[in-house]
Design a protein around this nucleic acid. Structure first.
Length: 848
RNA sequence: GGAUCCAUAGCUCAGUUGGUUAGAGCGCUUCCCUUACAAGGAAGAGGUCGUCGGUUCGAGCCCGUCUGGAUCCACCA
């Protein structure tokens, strides 16, 4: 409690240090602990986005996690048990890349485990040390542990009311088990399958990537006009940006209606370098006005090539390996074997130069290559354009091929309540645009292994069409160290034995199960029933196509329902030029600095001013406004609580008799209604604005108006004291979801329990007979009195000789009811004269 | 090429089912050291609501057009 003072509040209340003080106490008191209630309707459950711990947090995270937290706090005060977990997304590629850079190491599946391994003292990004898969995973675990501590500290400092007992990590054994179990069930129901097919491939990271992780970027290239030749030597010109792929050519293709090429259909031509004879074919996907109108189809240059390859049953002539280099052996379909030699083992870039040189030399390059900017598909986290490589990969159906499923998933999207509702369009657009199933396998190390093995025939060839699945009872499994069911470890990799599936699951394959991970699916059925389907899925709009959609897919398959009822979508924090913040642009604002500078409450205030779905530019000056509000709360509370001999035990609605006091409380109750309505529709900004607007009027007008009276000790004083005290308590609770630190600080000046477990204020209907219009009249009078003093450049304390008030009878009557307060606030020494009339209220002020 | 959102004061944004003189905060100007608060307070200036057209007694709001911006998707031989 307060020291050095006669009142309940300290003399010099401070914002500094409130974060550390209260987050420690909340932790000790278990303020945010979820206690299992009797039934589902007493729970409000949240599918918290698990942050990628390998990345750094920026203000955008602080904003969107605050959006969730204000709702969580509101629901808690409404009496719900709030299931508010935290998760760390610490598996997958992002972690691997961070470990690679941080320690200067690279995982290599062929190297044996070294129990004594220590990472290089000085990581050299140019000379990565190759280490075993297991050593690499250990480093991943070590680093994620460090990163997670940093994240937790920041979240506690920000005041997230997460229940830290409900903490999961996407790489934990429990997460691996759940991911594997869900996958096995998808497999058993036919929703997951393995397929040998052309896949988008990142040559740097050497893994397949999914449609959802693609990003188109501008990429410089050149159009090369190249001659193929008919058997009689007549040239047929095509245009290509990928001459390096000529060695993979399978056909030339033109549109069936294209008069220029009609005669060629069904004939063959020979490529300009390798002597490969290929057919000229017709296909409707060829566009007459693009390039030369006739395209070179290679395996594979782009997605159209894949379509032609599939629909025209063309041969597979892949030369680009998984490392992005052309294979070193000369392909058997190449006729001019010598021509391939300079290309062997080269990157696509070098191979392109070599091929162009050959084209130049033999005169088949028509004119100079023309520079162009083309859009190429990139993995969103990669930095080289993707190649298309045929390989065995695991897929989960997502409606990309199955139209019935697509309809079902679209219906789920409509069933979900979106905040704001137009965000549902993004979901629909994405589902409607899907053209492939969800590729979930990744050729990486740090992730969930597929619980799958393959039989090896007696010639030593694995049969990928007959995967052996683990039993659900055996999970989690690592097929790399555990033998397939029915086999012995000695049969690994030998004819008649088995091999493991070496791949790991895409990180989204695990994070698509966050409701299951957090809620104890299978492991704790009672808990799962209490919290699932969840109430709220908060997230930013960029991952609707990935995280949100994949969770809908999983819950639809596994649970036959939506994983949650509401999706609340946060906008981004943009840089001041309204550009997306990104590391590469160097415009990222680090949250620790602004939290330090303005305090968590101030930053939270600014976050809450950003409405759902709306991007907002970062502007530091706005944080000051939140800071000022927090300071004002301290000071206003101090005034109320430190009135002489004030005692909260003596505050009572029964004592509120003064019309101005009643009018203030009446107005406040309208504010409670507005704030409640705002929160109920997840429009926390509306709630905050209503509360804040009232609070400033409460401070500037009401407190000033009744202060003199409240310093007394008679009945009139206790009317004001009760009204002030009750209004303070209500406003603190209304502010509590937004400003958890300052409201808790003030609340505890006269309460023993946390404000965050106090009940949300409700309207007391016994007050409804109060005449709230008094309030408007008083405000007008105050403006007139202050205006006169301000215009006279006088102090607000300056004495007033007389007031001449004119206006409608009703207005004057209201003013008369509170005349003594008017006299006090104006410092009036003379008289008030009232003149009735039709004109609106007018107050003439005569200064002494 | 398709879609979504946005355009209101110098800046950031409100503006309810269409209804008198369009609102707030920041910034700016002037003033006030006032016993809750100078990390404060008071007063004030500042807008033909992006363009053109339509509906209506009446449009910031409804419809259409154009312009500018943001985001997502598709395509790119």
């Amino acid at each position: 409690m307060a020291d050095d003072t006669q009142g309940l509040a300290p003399d010099k209340p401070q914002l500094e240090g409130l974060e550390d003080k209260w987050s420690a106490i909340w932790r000790e008191e278990g303020t945010y602990t979820f206690h299992r209630p009797e039934s589902r309707d007493l729970v409000f459950s949240i599918d918290t986005p698990p942050p990628t711990v390998s990345g750094s947090l920026h203000v955008g995270h602080v904003f969107s996690y605050t959006h969730t937290d204000v709702i969580a706090r509101y629901k808690r005060m409404c009496g719900y048990q709030v299931f508010y977990p935290m998760g760390w997304d610490d598996n997958g590629l992002p972690t691997e890349r961070r470990v690679q850079n941080y320690y200067g190491v690279r995982g290599d599946a062929t190297i044996p485990y070294d129990p004594d391994f220590t990472p290089p003292a000085k990581p050299d990004p140019k000379r990565l040390v190759s280490i075993s898969r297991q050593n690499f995973i250990e480093l991943c675990q070590e680093l994620t542990g460090i990163d997670e501590k940093v994240f937790e500290d920041l979240w506690r400092h920000l005041g997230l009311s997460v229940d830290w007992n409900i903490l999961y990590s996407t790489v934990s054994p429990a997460s691996i088990e759940i991911s594997q179990r869900a996958f096995l069930r998808n497999l058993a129901r036919g929703e997951a399958y393995i397929d040998y097919a052309p896949t988008l491939w990142d040559v740097t990271l050497q893994t397949a990537v999914a449609q959802a992780e693609l990003e188109d970027r501008d990429y410089p290239g050149f159009y090369h006009r190249v001659a193929f030749h008919k058997p009689d030597g007549t040239p047929v010109y095509i245009e290509t940006t990928r001459p390096d792929l000529i060695v993979s050519v399978c056909a030339l293709i033109a549109h069936p209606n294209d008069e220029r090429y009609k005669d060629l259909f069904g004939t063959t031509v020979i490529d300009p370098v390798f002597g490969i004879e290929i057919p000229v074919l017709a296909h409707h996907a060829a566009e007459m006005d693009k390039g030369a109108g006739i395209a070179m189809c290679c395996t594979f240059g782009d997605k159209t090539d894949v379509q032609w390859w599939r629909e025209l049953s063309l041969p597979t002539r892949t030369v680009i390996g998984r490392d992005g280099r052309l294979q070193s052996e000369t392909p058997d379909w190449v006729v001019n074997k010598d021509a391939y030699a300079p290309l062997a083992g080269k990157t696509t870039y070098s191979a392109r130069e070599a091929v162009v040189a050959m084209l130049r030399e033999n005169g088949t390059l028509d004119g100079e290559p023309k520079a162009t900017t083309r859009k190429a598909a990139f993995y969103e986290k990669g930095d080289k354009p993707l190649e298309i490589v045929a390989s065995n990969q695991w897929y989960i159906s997502n409606g990309g091929k199955d139209l019935d499923l697509r309809e079902k998933l679209l219906a789920r999207g409509k069933e979900l309540k979106w905040v704001p509702d137009y965000m549902g369009h993004r979901y629909e657009d994405w589902v409607n645009g899907l053209n492939a199933d969800w590729l979930v396998s990744r050729q990486r190390f740090f992730g969930v292994p597929f619980p799958i093995w393959y039989p090896v025939d007696f010639d030593g060839n694995p049969d990928f069409t007959a995967p052996i699945a683990a039993s659900e009872d055996a999970l989690p499994v690592d097929p790399m160290t555990q033998p397939a069911p029915g086999y012995d470890e000695s049969q690994r990799g030998v004819p008649g034995g088995f091999i493991a599936d070496k791949d790991v699951m895409d990180t989204w394959a695990t994070s698509s199960l966050t409701p299951h991970l957090a809620a104890g699916w299978i492991a704790d059925p009672a808990l799962f029933d209490l919290v699932f389907p969840m109430d709220l899925a908060p997230q930013a709009h960029d991952i609707i196509r990935t995280w949100l959609f994949s969770r809908v897919v999983r819950a639809n398959f596994e649970n036959g329902c939506l994983p949650w009822a509401h999706a609340a979508i946060s906008g981004f924090v943009m840089d001041p030029d309204r550009k997306k913040m990104s590391k590469s642009k160097g415009n990222v604002v680090v949250p620790t600095e602004i939290l330090e500078k303005f305090g968590s409450d101030a930053v939270r205030w600014r976050a809450a001013m950003a409405r759902p779905g709306t991007d907002s530019p970062f502007d530091e000056t706005q944080m000051k406004v939140g800071r000022r509000l927090a300071t004002k709360i301290l000071n206003a509370a101090k005034l109320v609580l430190n009135l002489p001999d004030n005692d909260p035990a003596l505050w009572s609605l029964d004592k509120v008799k003064n019309p101005a006091d009643l009018a203030m409380l009446e107005t406040l109750h309208g504010v409670v209604n507005a704030a409640t309505a705002g929160f109920e529709s997840f429009e926390y900004t509306d709630a905050l604005e209503a509360v804040e607007k009232f609070f400033w009027v409460f401070c500037d007008d009401y407190i000033e108006f009744v202060k003199e009276r409240a310093y007394g000790s008679d009945e009139a004083a206790w009317s004001a004291r009760s009204a002030l005290g009750i209004a303070l308590g209500v406003q603190l609770r209304l502010f509590a979801p937004f400003l958890p630190f300052v409201t808790e600080e003030v609340w505890r000046w006269w309460h023993t329990d946390s404000i965050h477990l106090a009940s949300w204020p409700t309207v007391d209907h016994s007050l409804l007979q109060a005449d709230s219009e008094i309030w408007g009249t008083v405000s007008e009078a105050l403006v007139a009195i202050r205006g006169a003093k301000s215009q006279a450049k006088a102090s607000m304390k300056a004495q007033v000789a007389s007031l001449a008030v004119s206006g409608p009878p009703g207005t004057l009557a209201r003013l008369r009811l509170v005349e003594s307060d008017v006299r006090a606030v104006a410092h009036l020494v003379g008289d008030i004269t009232y003149t009735e009339g039709d004109a609106p209220l007018d107050v003439k002020v005569e200064l002494v």
